[in-house]
Design a protein around this nucleic acid. Structure first.
Length: 847
RNA sequence: GCCCGGAUGGCGGAAUGGUAGACGCAACAGACUUAAAAUCUGUCGAUCCUAGUGGUCGUGGGGGUUCAAGUCCCCCUCUGGGCACCA
């Protein structure tokens, strides 16, 4: 009797729907639990990464439900973004139409997986009902002083005359035009995330439910550093301020470097042709930090010198350098080549002095910079001090001599939220010739995107639109121009978890709902969001609270699980074109050929599943072939959630064979087990006791596995329990009772992972209730105690045998037994020491 | 370039500093079958010999701490993620 997953899965999904078991409401009498998976972008097809992410969430959700929590588990769509505009350009389809179609398709693909979503709470961020609230937030941020405008660099494609995203810049060129990308300054909107830098970094300590590595990444990203501003006088009378974290190395300075965008550089370039050319070269290439940091470090003297603030009469050259950015610090730095690798390379290239000021006990080879601590030398009043003392003393000296001051700075920069694109939330501001920048009146919100736009030319369709941007000033009512920027799509994902609490509210969210449901108890998503999305959401929590929104929690996400990616081997034909796994077939000799023409195929390394490499497996096909439970089980069983998962067809096949066997064995069990309410027998046979011990230990250990997301280990334990049940042959009434207990427990434990088949078996066992609504089993402590233990015996750390002993035997007995057991190995040698670790190991150290 | 991870049999992985390889996949052998599929049983890190209740080696590489290291410390290699306009 094979398990028919097709009818069974459809049947249970219908039952859950009809009984509305996934719907959630505020219930102050019950403890709430909010499970959330990161908001998906509706690309049109779900992929394995989604299936994994949502299965992880669903297991957590169903487990919490069984523990008796009032569960909320919502789902929605992060539906603004660049791909919709690319599709519009490539396929002449409106971004809105494309997006809506994708949402419908993805929802259709998601439903057969049987996730416990409350679809009543569904949101889509491209709808005016959603984005009107963030227009209001933006105005509130403006009023609270958290939003401002400033000039900032964008990637500019001079052929398309449009702004490019970093991913659209490939090797310094525009991806469509191939033109060399330039850095262009334009006015943009910024959110003052730096106002909260200190709180954002300090509060990381309270996020004990987050992975340590994510907290470390955020801490480093914010990059709080203690240092000093130092003022320099230039030979033309101007002054330059630099920021440094190494004021102790000021005596080792041999040059000053300023950014190409520094006002002094700009001014001098008007009369200095070489400098002007160099600055133009600096403005070539993308704006990403990786592009700038990996570029060759180049500089151009500006023809001025700077006076050393502490060494009278000493002057040093000043350069414009391509690795100094106007956006960081003061846009200027001093170079100490001996103790900074980048400065070292710069000094070597331009033949500048390399003066050692930190002595490292003489091991420095002068081939690279020495960036560590040591004793100060060649540093006047700092000589003989440690680096730490020198830092402190130097800052005091700068303060007292009025040439600088101590400062705390952050690597974190303010969040640029402007995008010069169509498919995003319009910025609700108006530019008036008389009043300047004026926020829209709140009663005019939402400022809707115009539908009638074209993508037949590059650039911002909002700007091109014939009428949309023409409006009247909200303040003086004279003709004025709408801001044509839209918001960064990270804006939408920074507060959607609040919207889920009150998805239909006229407000962004209602106080009573947010107070009940927030914070998110378990947040699950890709590790690639470890910094930006999570940091922006943490910032929003603080910024909204500052604006008076009813937020009664400090951090939005209490517990965080970051999952790894799904990988698959890549395949290329002899021309180097990527092939999908469906286009190839294996030969007996282990190599692969193309199905169409039998030409040889090169098998590449494992890579993240992506459309461009074509190494994707469509979850739809897997679900058709094996069912949702198999896909879910395989996803959870093969490796830990945080690690990358390699998809293999044979692995899915194994999961299917297991479920099928579980079903057939359970159906056999139905024929011999007692009725559901049969009382527990008073006496059990040895075999029954053995089985019950396995059952109760599994409950205890598996529950711990679920708590710690060790799902793969948990599945292994369920397999062990299954093997014990499959091998068990109940003869007496007590054995049959234990057999039932074992199967029912297994079904309850497996239900969060493979819910459909478990409901099916649960029903066959005579239950009228859903296993979904059945309380989680509890282990009986008396059945989980070990009575007999195996103790390993080592001689000099090497395993030489094992002995069986009653648990908790006293150390002396264990020691003597162990010594006797390996006496043939210790004959003629002196026993120097014996280490006994209770119930574990005896190590005998002999000479 | 900078920040954060990872590396254990043919493969995915398991292992509070205490018996490395649980559980599974693949493979191989056998049973069943006219045959195949499915199912069931067994073997399964490498190597050596005298074939055992055996010896030696073995957790990316090199060093160290410890009675004991996959696990802790230092150095290195390879590899994944992020780097502010992909989401």
């Amino acid at each position: 009797m094979r398990y028919n997953f097709k009818t069974s899965e459809a049947k249970w999904q219908k039952t859950w729907d009809e009984r509305r078991v996934f719907e959630s409401d505020v219930d102050p009498s019950k403890q709430k639990y909010y499970v959330l998976e990161m908001l998906p972008y509706p690309s049109g097809r779900i992929h394995m990464g989604h299936v994994r992410n949502y299965t992880l969430g669903d297991v957590a959700a169903r487990y919490r439900k069984a523990l008796g929590y009032n569960l909320m588990h919502p789902m929605g769509w992060d539906s603004f973004g660049l791909p919709a505009e690319n599709a519009a350009m490539e396929r002449k389809v409106h971004p809105g139409e494309w997006t809506n179609k994708n949402i419908t398709e993805m929802k259709t693909q998601l439903k057969p997986l049987g996730f416990s979503y409350d679809w009543n709470r569904e949101i889509a961020t491209h709808t005016p009902e959603y984005y009107r609230h963030e227009q209001k937030m933006m105005i509130d941020f403006w009023k609270a002083g958290l939003l401002y405008r400033k000039e900032s660099h964008v990637n500019w494609d001079p052929v398309e005359n449009s702004v490019l995203a970093n991913e659209q810049v490939i090797d310094g060129r525009g991806w469509r035009s191939g033109a060399l990308v330039e850095r262009k300054l334009i006015h943009q909107w910024f959110l003052k995330i730096t106002d909260f830098a200190d709180d954002l970094v300090e509060s990381l300590d309270t996020l004990t439910g987050w992975p340590e590595k994510v907290r470390t990444m955020q801490k480093n990203w914010i990059g709080k550093s203690q240092g000093a501003y130092v003022d320099f006088q230039l030979s033309d009378g101007e002054a330059v301020t630099v920021f440094t974290t190494r004021p102790d190395t000021l005596f080792g300075m041999s040059f000053l470097a300023i950014a190409a965008g520094h006002p002094i550089a700009k001014k001098l370039s008007e009369t200095n042709a070489d400098l002007k050319t160099f600055i133009q070269e600096c403005e070539r290439g993308g704006t990403s930090e990786a592009a700038i940091e990996t570029a060759e470090k180049l500089g151009c003297p500006i023809g001025l010198t700077a006076s050393h603030p502490l060494i009278p009469g000493k002057t040093i050259p000043v350069y414009v350098a391509n690795f100094v950015l106007m956006e960081y610090g003061t846009g200027a730095l001093f170079g100490c080549p001996a103790h900074d690798q980048r400065d070292f390379e710069f000094a070597t290239r331009y033949n500048l002095p390399i003066v050692q000021v930190v002595f490292d006990n003489g091991s420095w080879d002068r081939a690279t910079a020495y960036a560590g601590d040591g004793t100060m030398i060649n540093s006047g009043f700092l000589d003989g001090m440690t680096s730490a003392a020198a830092k402190k003393t130097m800052i005091e000296k700068l303060d007292s001599s009025n040439t600088g001051k101590s400062a705390t700075t952050y690597r974190l920069r303010d969040w640029g939220v402007s995008r010069q694109r169509y498919w995003g939330c319009p910025v609700p501001f108006v530019h008036c010739g008389d009043c300047g920048v004026v926020p829209e009146k709140v009663e005019n919100l939402p400022i809707k995107l115009p539908e009638d736009v074209t993508f037949d030319r590059p650039g911002n369709p909002l700007d091109h639109h014939p009428t949309w941007k023409h409006t009247n000033c909200p303040s003086c009512n004279k003709p004025a121009i709408r801001d044509t920027d839209t918001m960064d799509t990270f804006f939408e994902s920074s507060w959607y978890f609040l919207r889920y609490c009150s998805p239909k509210s006229e407000q962004a969210f209602d106080e009573k709902d947010a107070q009940y449901w927030m914070p998110v108890d378990q947040y699950i998503g890709g590790v690639e969001h470890a910094i930006l999305h999570l940091l922006y959401s943490r910032f929003f929590t603080r910024a909204l609270r500052k604006c008076g929104y009813p937020i009664q929690f400090d951090e939005p996400f209490k517990n965080l699980l970051t999952q790894g990616m799904i990988t698959h081997a890549t395949y290329q034909d002899k021309e180097g074109a990527w092939l999908s796994p469906a286009e190839i077939m294996p030969l007996d000799n282990g190599t692969f050929v193309k199905i169409t023409d039998r030409s040889p195929v090169t098998v590449g390394r494992l890579e993240k599943m992506s459309k461009s490499k074509k190494n994707t497996i469509d979850p739809g096909e897997i679900i058709d072939a094996y069912g949702a439970d198999t896909a879910r089980l395989f996803m959870m069983s093969d490796n830990p959630p945080e690690k990358d998962l390699e998809w293999t067809d044979s692995g899915a096949d194994g999961a299917w064979r297991y479920l099928n066997k579980l079903y057939t064995q359970a159906m056999y069990a139905v024929d011999c087990i007692p009725a559901a309410n049969t009382p527990e027998p008073e006496v059990f046979s040895a075999a029954a006791m053995n089985l019950r011990q396995v059952v109760h230990k599994t409950i205890m250990e598996y529950t711990h596995d679920l708590e710690t997301f060790a799902y793969n280990r948990g599945v292994a334990r369920l397999r062990t329990l299954s093997n014990a049940l499959f091998a068990f042959d109940p003869k007496t009434a007590d054995e049959k009772w234990a057999f039932r207990e074992g199967y029912e427990t297994l079904i309850q434990l497996l239900a969060p992972i493979a819910p459909h088949i478990c409901e099916e078996v649960w029903q066959s066992f005579g239950h009228a209730t859903l296993v979904y609504e059945t309380p989680w089993p509890k282990h009986r402590p008396d059945l989980t105690l070990e009575t007999q233990v195996t103790i390993a015996i080592q001689v000099n750390g090497k395993l030489r045998g094992t002995i069986e002993m009653p648990a908790d035997s006293d150390d002396e007995t264990v020691k003597q037994t162990a010594l006797n057991h390996v006496a043939h190995l210790t004959d003629g040698k002196t026993v120097q020491r014996v280490i006994v670790v209770k119930n574990k190991i005896v190590n005998i150290v002999v000479s």
